[in-house]
Design a protein around this nucleic acid. Structure first.
Length: 583
RNA sequence: GUCCCCAUCGUCUAGCGGUCUAGGACGUCGCCCUUUCACGGCGAAAACAGGGGUUCGAGUCCCCUUGGGGACGCCA
């Protein structure tokens, strides 16, 4: 695609350069000026009907601020054909899981669609991953934003698996995506749509377009096209299909060659995508080529499938990665040709790895399940991901319920963000400290594998207050709780080893005798006894706490030592102490 | 090559023409608390990419340069 386009605007060569958010705002403003002029509002619920904004030329005037951006949840009323989409869409029923009726029930619509009055409609978002790999952190964020947006508007969040690439799609990847979403707590409504199963409907649309003269058959072979591109490259020309079959008469058909069906895209004018994040993005139509709708084997291309599925699923808001921005312009050709309503777009800036490079396996693009294995909490993950590209003033800790309440499209940032594990750790640590001891114990227990038991659970809970403020992940938590399950005689790590000098061991022996006399085995009593002992012997508390810690946990760090004593219990504690004395 | 997007501390970001001596968070460093490690508290270093304009006034608006990223498949 892509042919060079002289800019249409008089005083700009690039329409949106530089660190100039406001130009974007301007464009959004422009959108307000044009959209309501030609369309009726469909969504009213959360966006007050707005007065038309000042015309574009009035830029020096007021509101370029985010709060005055156009009502993004405004879209044109669908035309009748819209509903035709529902036939053949057998995979989904009319009800969301929670029983709410959602989407456009054709009956209701047909009786209402002619009204000039707006009506309240459900916001429908979707997450549409292709199962050619695991769900990575970027995809997870996209899913989160879609989920948040729909939940905020009490709308519907749908999941569609784009499995039309039969070569690369795998059931394992589908499972990974589903498990990842479930772990993250991003529940979707209604049934999952599998795109491949809808190929017939996609083809039907292509044929309809063909019949309407909005598409045509092209007999150019892949080799021929490759050669064409080669020549274009060599000549330094934009690379795009040159429309060689666009106007050929039917008599030129090649009888033995199966043709592809290409869209007959407009060649003049421009296509404007009113993007809620990027602003109005304009593409000269001469840049758009006649891309393929239906392959020569009769299967639909992605470009066709997404449009048809989004339409049939009643998707009103498309929130997806920035890498689809240029696709949006092409998809619009299909939408327009079919006379369907255009969805609201929000293209999220892509995420980068810690090193600023593209997200890849070695740069933090772990499968989302790996974050689970690393010991992160879903809620922390959600909070972290949310802040990566979305903000609410200076707020950092934003629990999910609060996020649902606050989330909007206008506070999505426009520049790419890097993942930062340090910050993730910090956020996770916060949520761990916040969590109840019981919940944390239950989340940590599985990490103990075969050692998990009701007894261990009880010990974990007892030790949790001291444990959780020291850990940033569940893995760290489990690690620092190892002393609970360690068997005697304890293995000492290097630091503990050093702590236990002969003098220290003697000291542990004396403390053992002291504790044997303790009237009751709890932290306050043991603490008091130890302090008396320290005072009587002119020792600092630290001087006895550290050897004790080494003897009881095998390490140099642990929760408060008297808590450790209490959790371990009298017999085990004294035995561990004894082990070190007699060495 | 063509088209598109982006640009404030190392990182995530606030900033909506005057209130910016640019705020917060993570990270880093120092101090305090303290039985260790943490947690917590206090403090420090740390940014408007460069250049032109517009304006009485620009981190904020416009343009250019530079630098990043994306898209250009009978992949999705």
């Amino acid at each position: 695609m892509d042919v060079q386009t002289p800019r249409k605007q008089p005083n700009k060569t690039r329409n949106n350069t530089g660190a100039h958010g406001p130009s974007r705002r301007l464009k959004r403003q422009c959108e307000v000026a044009t959209d309501p002029a030609t369309h009726q509002h469909r969504y009213e619920q959360h966006a007050p009907r707005r007065v038309r904004a000042p015309p574009f030329g009035n830029r020096a005037r007021k509101p370029r601020d985010k709060r005055n951006r156009p009502a993004h949840n405004v879209a044109p009323i669908p035309r009748a054909q819209h509903f035709a989409g529902f036939r053949g869409f057998a995979q989904t029923g009319p009800h969301a899981k929670d029983g709410r009726v959602f989407g456009r029930s054709a009956g209701a619509w047909n009786s209402n669609r002619n009204r000039t009055q707006s009506r309240i409609m459900k916001i429908v978002t979707r997450f549409a991953p292709s199962p050619t790999g695991y769900l990575h952190i970027g995809g997870a964020r996209t899913a989160l934003f879609n989920w948040l947006y729909s939940r905020h508007h009490k709308g519907v969040f749908r999941l569609r698996i784009e499995d039309t690439d039969r070569q690369r799609s795998t059931p394992a990847a589908i499972d990974a995506i589903i498990e990842g979403l479930e772990w993250l707590g991003l529940s979707w409504d209604d049934e999952i749509v599998y795109q491949f199963a809808r190929a017939e409907r996609h083809a039907e649309v292509a044929k309809q377009l063909l019949a309407q003269g909005r598409a045509y058959q092209c007999y150019a072979s892949p080799e021929e096209l490759e050669q064409m591109r080669e020549e274009q490259r060599a000549a330094g020309k934009p690379i795009r299909y040159d429309g060689r079959w666009r106007d050929k008469p039917a008599s030129d058909r090649r009888p033995n060659v199966p043709p592809v069906i290409r869209i007959k895209a407009p060649q003049t004018g421009e296509t404007i995508i009113h993007d809620q994040v990027q602003g109005d993005v304009r593409f000269g139509n001469d840049v758009l080529d006649d891309f393929i709708l239906l392959r020569s084997d009769g299967t639909p291309t992605y470009m066709l499938s997404v449009v048809v599925d989004d339409h049939d699923m009643g998707v009103t808001h498309i929130i997806r990665g920035d890498d689809h921005l240029t696709n949006a312009a092409r998809q619009r050709q299909i939408i327009d040709a079919m006379g369907w309503p255009e969805p609201v777009y929000a293209h999220l800036p892509l995420m980068h790895g810690e090193d600023g490079q593209k997200l890849s396996k070695r740069h933090g693009a772990l499968g989302i399940h790996e974050y689970k294995d690393l010991g992160y909490l879903p809620e922390a993950m959600r909070n972290y991901l949310l802040r990566l590209g979305w903000s609410h003033g200076d707020d950092e800790i934003i629990p999910t319920a609060q996020a649902v309440e606050w989330f909007n499209l206008e506070n999505i940032g426009r520049s790419p963000a890097r993942v930062d594990f340090k910050k993730l750790d910090n956020v996770n640590g916060h949520y761990m400290r916040q969590a109840s001891d019981e919940a944390l114990a239950d989340a940590t227990l599985p990490l103990f594998k075969g050692q998990a038991s009701p007894d261990l659970r009880a010990k974990l809970i007892a030790a949790m207050p001291g444990l959780k403020e020291r850990a940033k992940t569940l893995v760290e938590l489990a690690d620092s709780a190892q002393f609970l399950t360690a068997t005697r005689p304890l293995k000492l790590d290097d630091k503990a080893q050093k702590l236990l000098t002969p003098e220290a061991r003697a000291l542990v022996g004396r403390l053992k005798s002291l504790f044997e006399q303790a009237p009751s085995w709890d932290a306050p009593a043991l603490d008091a006894a130890a302090r008396h002992f320290a005072e009587a012997n002119g020792l600092k508390l630290g001087a006895i706490a550290q050897p004790l810690r080494a003897a009881l946990t095998g390490r140099s760090t642990s929760p408060g030592i008297f808590d450790v004593l209490a959790v371990l219990g009298r017999a085990e504690s004294l035995a561990r102490m004894g082990d070190q004395v007699h060495q």
